[in-house]
């Protein structure tokens, strides 16, 4: 078992311990929100970061995931794990289908068409009366929360498992041969294709994986907020976080979104409590713009630049400028 899996197991155990030791539900609400951001950031980055196709509509998949969950809960009263899997599958297929339609476009047009897609999804959901339409739907929190003290603790652990799965997949993808192909696509798509990289197929793999994890992130959402309407599911704030977290953390490596999600998520939870939630949004916007303009490589990029400079300044006196 590698270091990564040891770490993942450690995180999981720590989560369990946390649910056992802490009673204050507030921490689990906060933890849930941060983990939701982490899953979405990781999902977004699988397409947006690894291949360079900026996707503004991916949070739409999150909302669809939430609504699939509502619909199946109402129709068949399926247990949560099935809802998560079903949402993952449906959104994965949607990622594949929309990817097939749009991923042949150049990056800019792709980004715009994803904006369009999110609005179309929102319109469809708003008109879907079975799940409440524009007025929304109430979800009764299930009584049974296994051996956890409350249902939100259960949800927190569910999100932790999905988060570990998402990060593990992103890591696997980026270190695999496929990941090398994705990086080649981001750097230069035509050159990649001419070097034997099946660009469309790899982009579709990315888009599908993005959809799967976005959907999974959305599936427990109705149970978390207990009332879901198009406004809350398609909230701009959720969408912005999914993009801001990877960009702030660093889009080129699998752990960039994780770092971004933890830092931004924690900051948000703290400012929401201590100051106000609107100011909190403003901070996200300003920090996002700051990073995009001044440090496009995100935090990971900053650290890499810094260590490279230190290496260079150490090497410089002896090498005397090798070029």
């Amino acid at each position: 078992m590698g270091r990564f899996w040891l770490g993942a197991t450690g995180v999981f155990m720590a989560g369990l311990l946390f649910t056992g030791a802490v009673d204050n539900e507030f921490y689990f609400f906060s933890g849930y929100v941060i983990l939701q951001g982490l899953i979405m950031a990781t999902a977004w980055n699988i397409l947006g970061g690894f291949t360079g196709y900026v996707n503004f509509g991916s949070a739409g998949f999150f909302a669809v995931g939430a609504y699939i969950s509502v619909a199946l809960h109402q129709a068949l009263a399926l247990p949560l794990p099935f809802l998560i899997l079903a949402s993952g599958m449906v959104c994965g297929l949607m990622g594949l289908a929309t990817g097939y339609l749009t991923l042949r476009l150049k990056g800019i047009y792709f980004a715009i068409s994803t904006l369009a897609m999110a609005i179309v999804l929102e319109t469809v959901i708003t008109n879907w009366e079975y799940v409440g339409g524009a007025s929304g739907a109430y979800i009764l929190t299930p009584k049974d929360s296994l051996f956890f003290a409350s249902y939100v603790e259960l949800l927190f652990m569910v999100m932790l498992i999905i988060a570990i799965a998402a990060v593990a997949f992103a890591r696997y993808l980026s270190t695999s041969r496929t990941g090398k192909g994705l990086t080649a696509i981001r750097d230069d798509e035509l050159a990649a294709e001419c070097m034997g990289v099946p660009t469309l197929r790899l982009k579709l793999v990315s888009a599908t994986a993005m959809g799967v994890f976005m959907g999974m992130a959305g599936a427990p959402f109705p149970f978390f907020i207990t009332f879901v309407d198009p406004l809350s599911a398609f909230s701009l704030f959720i969408a912005v976080n999914a993009i801001a977290m990877p960009l702030i953390g660093g889009t080129k490596v699998w752990y960039g979104p994780v770092i971004g999600a933890l830092i931004l998520g924690l900051t948000q939870e703290i400012t929401t409590v201590t100051i106000s939630s609107e100011l909190n949004l403003l901070i996200v916007g300003v920090v996002l713009i700051g990073f995009i303009t001044l440090a496009p490589g995100g935090i990971v990029g900053l650290v890499q630049d810094f260590s490279r400079k230190r290496l260079r300044s150490k090497a410089a006196p002896s090498a005397g400028g090798d070029r």
């Binding site: 990056g107 980004a111 403003l282 996002l288």
Partner: peptide, 18 residues
Amino acid sequence: SLNGLAFFFGLMFTVEVL
């Protein structure tokens, strides 16, 4: 292309929040 797009996205969001 990529960063410029994200920049305007951030700008849009920030102005709206302001």
